[in-house]
Design a protein around this nucleic acid. Structure first.
Lengths: 139, 139
DNA sequence: GACAATTTGTACGTATGTATG
DNA sequence: TCATACATACGTACAAATTGT
């Protein structure tokens, strides 16, 4: 697949599509290191700016994580199942940056907000949490 | 409050903090139009690049929406409560761009993924959905 | 309808900083 | 020490869509 600068779709979205497809097809596997930004620059003849935008899109989707040594496909960690009893509510949203740091959550990962019938709330990282409705009272 | 280019915290994060604080304090209210990018450029003597990065942070947090005519504070729409019966699981993640367009979801909004005991799944926009655990069978 | 102004979107460039190997 | 690679931040230019004249 290639990138067409004259196409309707922006260059950076074309690159994001391309990398996303490679992740979803398994060509880039969880934990695997992506090529460096400059590799994409050289391969497709586009600016580093466009490559970085594409990476930002994929980070925002939670598909990759970027560190100083490069980007890699996110590995889905073990998820803990949290049982909730009848009457408990669950919502989700993106954390603000302070929340993200405080809760130790990666970029592109939402938080689940659990509100018990008594008003108590908990915030949990969505990439490590599965909610399951239970019949009986439980934590 | 002002912005210090020589501070440890990047300029764009300082601006994001500043605007976030104004939103959370109510100085910028839901639905209200934010100043244009160039207004921040002029007010703080920073580049448009930095302003746009700050906006991207806030969009990613779901706090603002940006259209061609400007950015505004997101209005939290009416949320529908979805009851789930025992055994049903709930997860959340960010949608990919195709999912986002297909489901008509704004940037910075996660999706809730509901998996029924029979394996059926539903994807719902997290900004318009509250999950509630019920005692009995229900949709 | 035509035209200009406003505002965001995209895309290129350069330079410097910081952390890793 | 040096090379690599990402992060930040400045600049420019033009495109596209909306709004107002």
């Amino acid at each position: 697949m290639t990138i067409d600068p004259s196409a309707d779709r922006p260059v950076y979205k074309q690159l994001a599509d391309l990398i996303r497809a490679r992740i979803q097809s398994g060509e880039y596997r969880p934990g695997q290191r992506l090529p460096a930004e400059n590799d994409f620059v050289a391969e497709y003849g586009i600016s580093r700016d466009s490559v970085r935008r594409a990476m930002a899109v994929l980070r925002g989707e939670g598909l990759i994580v970027t560190e100083l040594r490069g980007s890699r496909v996110r590995e889905v960690g073990e998820a803990v199942t949290v049982s909730i009893s009848p009457g408990t509510q669950v919502a989700a949203r993106m954390p603000t940056e302070p929340e993200r740091k405080q809760l130790g959550i990666a970029e592109g990962v939402p938080i689940l907000i659990i509100t018990e019938p008594d008003g108590e709330t908990r915030k949990l990282p969505a990439d490590r949490t599965i909610i399951e409705a239970s019949k009986e009272q439980q934590g």
